[in-house]
Structure formats: C-alpha cells, structure tokens
Design a protein around this nucleic acid. Structure first.
Lengths: 353, 353
DNA sequence: TTGAGTTGTGCCATACGTTGCACAAAATAA
DNA sequence: TTATTTTGTGCAACGTATGGCACAACTCAA
C-alpha cells in the first residue's frame, strides 16, 4: 500500500499484496478469497474480506485482463460518417439498448468511431489485436463493408446490427425490413391509394434496399405500376427530404401518399409540405420508419413502423455476450418484430375533438 | 508466436517477444523501436519494423496499461436515469462532441450508466479504483451530486459538463444559462410581451435553476410581475409539456408567450397547443433551449438558444485530456457561448410565401 | 500408540506482455 | 592502449491468477 504519483496526481494504490501482508496470508490466498470457488477456510475468508473492506481494496482491471485474456468490455463501432449519423435519435436509442443490457451483465462499453474507411479498419485492428475488447457490435450495414470481412478473417466475436448482403452467415440482429415496408405500403394501399411514392435512403445501405424492395413488392402485388420517378432519393438527414418536396408536388400527377424510409427524413418532408401549404393527412398521407420518440409529437403525429430500436441494441448486446462466453445461440440471425403505429399522418378521418 | 485458444476462439497471439526472437534482438530493443525516441541503429530499427509488419504484431494494450499506469481512455458517466434522458438528442450530441475530440487525440471512450444513486458510485469506483480510465466526464449537474464528492475525495481527474452549485471550484464546461434565459426572455419582452410564462425542467438540475433565474431577472428588469403560477413544472420528456398546455391556456389570462427550458419539451408544448387549435406564433410565441437538430423542422420551426451542444462535449474532452496529461488550464470553468436562433415560433410577422 | 491414508488449507513459483533501468558489448576516437 | 560514445541486453518490475506441492489435521486400522 503505497502512495504513487502519476502525472502529478497522488494515488493511494492498494494491491492484493498489501491486503495479503496485513491479513497475514499470501497474495494467492487473497486472490482465492476474491474468486470464491476454492478451498479457503471460512475464518480466513472472513478475515481477508474484512481487511479488503478496511483498506478499500479494488482489483486492478488491467492486471486482471492481462492474465485472464478477457476484458469484460464490448466495443461499439459507429457507422463511418458518425459525425452526421449520430444526430439521428435512432442510433442513440440503439446505444441505449446496448448500454442497458451490457451494464446488467457487467460488461463495459467502448464507444468508437472513425473518419474514413481506412481509419475504421485501423480502429478495429486496435481493438482486436490490442485485445482491447472481448467482442464487437457493428452498427453498420453498408454493402461490401470491409470491417465485416476483417472481423471474419480474424475470427473475432462480433454481431452486426442490420444485415450484410455479402456475408449471409454472420451473427446479426435485424428487422424484417422488407416485410416492414410491405406492411407500411399496404396500410396505404388498403386506404385506396395508388399514387404512392417512396422516399429512399442512402443507396449503399442494405436497409434502404430492403425497405425499397418491400415497397415494390406491395405495389406489385396490388398491380400498381411504379413509374420511374416514384422513387425519390433521400438521406438520413432531413434537409433533403425537405427540398425534394417542392419538386415532387409540382409534378403533373402528384402523389396522394408517401412512404418515407426514416422518421427524421419524414420530419423534413412534413416541413416541406407545410411550407407548400399542403395539409397532412388531408391532402397527402405519410408513413415512415423507426418510430423515434419525437415522431408522436410532430404536427401531425407521424405514423411510423416501430422496429424495436431499443430492443435491437439490447438483443445485440445479449447475443454478443453469449458468443463471447461461448454459449450456444438459438440462431445466427435474429429478427426483432416490428409493428405499425398508426397516427394522424396516415389517418383517413381525423378524429379531432 | 503461438496459437492460443480462448473460450473456443482460436487466436494467433504475436507478442513483442516473438518479434524479438525472430528479429534476433531482445524484447527491450523491440520496445524501443516502437517507442521511437531512443538510440537504436537505423538498420536494427528497419529490420525490427519489417518483422513487426510481417508478423502483424500489435501491442497488447492491457499489458501496456499495466506498466504505464495509463489507459488512454476516458469514461463518460451518463446521468442517473439514463434510460430516459438518453432519449434526448441533446445528450447524443454531447457524446458526439466528446467522441470526435477524443478520437482525434487517440483516446478511447468508455460509456457507462447506472440505475440508482448507489449504483452510480459503485460504477465510478470501479472505473477509478480499478484504474480503468485516466479521467472522467460527468454528464450530470444535479444538486448535491455524490459522484462529484467522491471524485474530489479520490482526487481523480474529471470534468463536469454543467455546473455544480455545491462545489464551485471543480473543472467544468458549461454555458451561461442565466444569461441565455435572460436573452430568450428579453427577445419576447422586446416584442412587447408581458404575459410570459416559463416552463421549467426538473427542480434538482442546476441548469433548470439557472434558466429560471435568467427568466426572472429579465422579467424583473422589465418591471413585469411574475405571478405564482407563471412558472410551470415541466420535464425533459415531452409528454408533460404537452399535458400542461390545456391547463395553462384555459386560465383566465392566458400567456402570449412561452419560454420552455428544452426543445423536446417545446415539441410537447407545441403539440399541445396544436391540439387545442392555438396557432403558433400567431396567437402565442415560443422560445426554447438547446437547439437540437430537429427543432428547425418543427411546424412551426422552433426558436431556440443554441448552446453549442457539440462544442460542450468537444471542449469537455479537450479539457479533460489536458488535465490528465497535466497540462496547464486557462481556467477551471469554461463557458461555451450561446446564441439565439430566431425561427418562426417567435416571429412577429410571419413571412410566408 | 503408531503409521498410513485422506482431506483440507495455504504457499511458492511462474506466467501474462510490456517498459525502463543499469549495465555489457561493440564500435569509434584519442 | 585507453577513454568515449553508440548500441543492445538482462532483469526486475506492474498486479493478478493458478497448478503443483507442502504441511497440518483428522480418520481409521493395526
């Protein structure tokens, strides 16, 4: 038990040895008392525990990790342009889920992002080869993601939130986005709409593709022909949705309903429509995805597919911990159920008091 | 360089010793090549680097930390009821700032939350005594925060985002919230409003107190008397603001302007007003705080005090790293400037096309 | 009572992968 | 040759975990 000075800060470093010395036993004995399941007499155990308490002993996690080759830490790799994407409540909500479950299981969370593609591999390398974490949660579902390739090559435990088009056998937690978009679109078709447009997300994200596919499937089954310009390029951020509106609504045959691939984009769309003096849902209906907390507070409240965002993170963490601890998995790919939350933006008759 | 099996996963663990053996030098020599600044002949350096490259060597961070007593990791302690608060984009944005700056400085981020007060101290203890992180960013500014007391007692490097009422001398990054609220209120007073209400946040948060004080100050200076019920209890979450509205607007002498302590709450207020058929800004003006990304997409767009949320996180990280590395600080308390972003919700004449 | 066998208890030595200090060896200069 | 510099090595830490082993105590039979 000695006082150490690190970078100007005074430290009272009490180690297992100090406890041992004062308790009059060997360090190994103290270690065994801590880990429990080994042959130590009750009175020794009691004595050692008392001393630990008294001295305020706390095991050094680095030393522990070094010998156990285990960190009890999970790494989260945020999507590459984290600067922008993290804006979206959606990601915050996923992290919230991961955090809750990890804390419960006594795992720590290392949060990481990167600036470029090359940078991302470097970041991951540091975590993996530096034995910094036990496993990794990948929050990216771009096509041809080099990170997935890398982690597979390294045979390092990881789970993907989302779906990889290229590596179908990776452990992942995702929604059935095709079905979700199919449901959303059908909700509008059921109301008699036919001129339904789809505002899509970044082309390189698998989730965009899936939702687009679901939209197409529903339209096709309803025998509605999708014109070339019915699919509108959007982005995760809202401004683009906003800009797109004036263009779309000025067309010859404007839509009567919209499926927007993300709530934040939907806010932008809504804003754009309001600017144009177009009333939602009276003149045009709107459905979107992710059901972020604030969607119900939009004017009008936005109908959205709740994809269980929190649950997505929660399950990802749960799954990863299972993988890391070498426990059996029920299935490699886990699907979180979704459900359509119908709000004013897609209601036929507005029941206002 | 041997293959190790951990929890079922096969590992190719290449250590500094392997590199040394193959390069025909001692481990210390390799260590020096890595750290650079020591006398090693150019050809040895070259040779060792080549072998490292070939073997894909990467230093074990745990071992490094053990001997250096440094982790190059910062811990973030989310506010206690993290489950709810993290919902708020505001916190996500702060973390984004912390993350960006930390990555830039090659520091990792350990994200942590807790369920109860007692739990929080335990969590922090683990980080501090387990030598898990070099410093801590505290995202809590409640009154009488036991975490602050603890960290001070332990003499552990930390910075507070926000302000501590009890410990004025802690290193912190904050806004001048009194002034911010003063400005917001004056913006309304300047328009001739006198019946201005304040929707406040959780009583135990210092920021709520500060903003309330700023409101009072502005009102007082304008010689406007604040009636008892002009200060409305709100919460960070939006439902409460929503509920409050019907009550307020049904009063005898309804307000013509509102200062709401947070954007998300403002969304709730706005929703409540819309439900009641009250037009913003025609019938009532609205100003709030934090300027979260989505505020400009509300209908109408919400006037908000931009408190430089991202900057708050960025500076906190910067400051903490400086503290941890024992570099001098310009000031213990750092104030991030704010500015009022005027949008439709508080405009006098709506200039709509 | 004694010796052998059995069980319970705790310690020693070693290892994890790295760094840093004191010193050895080699190269160069005087 | 000796002194001096340059370059590299050996060893001891850092704080913890663990297999093997010593030792004491206890049981039981002769």
């Amino acid at each position: 038990m000695e006082s150490v000075k690190i970078r100007g800060y005074e430290w009272m470093s009490v180690t297992i040895k100090d406890v041992a010395r004062i308790a009059g036993v060997s360090p190994s004995t103290v270690s065994r008392v801590i880990s429990g399941h080994t042959r130590i007499s009750p009175q020794t155990t009691k004595k050692v525990k008392l001393i630990m308490e008294e001295l305020g002993y706390f095991p050094n996690i680095m030393a522990k990790s070094l010998v156990s080759k285990t960190t009890r830490t999970l790494g989260i790799i945020l999507p590459r342009p984290a600067e922008e994407l993290f804006l979206n409540l959606f990601f915050a909500e996923i992290i919230r889920g991961i955090l809750a479950q990890s804390m419960r299981a006594s795992y720590d969370i290392l949060l990481t992002s990167s600036f470029s593609d090359k940078d991302e591999i470097e970041t991951i390398t540091k975590l993996v080869k530096g034995r910094r974490v036990d496993g990794i949660i990948l929050l990216s579902s771009r096509k041809n993601d080099p990170s997935i390739q890398f982690l597979r090559d390294q045979n390092f435990p990881f789970v993907l939130i989302g779906r990889s088009a290229d590596y179908p056998d990776v452990t992942s937690v995702d929604n059935d986005n095709v079905q979700a978009a199919y449901d959303a679109t059908n909700h509008l078709i059921a109301q008699g709409h036919t001129n339904i447009r789809f505002v899509t997300g970044p082309e390189e994200m698998v989730v965009s593709q899936d939702r687009l596919a679901g939209y197409k499937k529903a339209m096709s089954e309803a025998n509605i022909n999708i014109a070339q310009d019915w699919i509108i390029e959007g982005e995760l951020l809202s401004q683009s949705g906003y800009r797109a509106m004036s263009f779309i609504m000025s067309q010859q045959n404007p839509p009567t309903a919209l499926v927007v691939f993300d709530d934040v984009a939907a806010f932008g769309v809504l804003r754009g429509l309001t600017e144009l003096g177009i009333k939602v849902p009276d003149q045009i209906k709107l459905v979107s995805f992710n059901n972020i907390a604030i969607s119900e507070l939009a004017s009008p409240p936005i109908s959205s597919i709740d994809i269980g965002t929190y649950q997505l993170g929660y399950s990802a963490s749960q799954t990863l911990i299972r993988v890391v601890q070498n426990e059996p998995l029920n299935a490699k790919e886990m699907i979180i159920p979704h459900r359509l939350i119908i709000r004013e933006s897609s209601m036929n008759k507005v029941s206002r008091v």
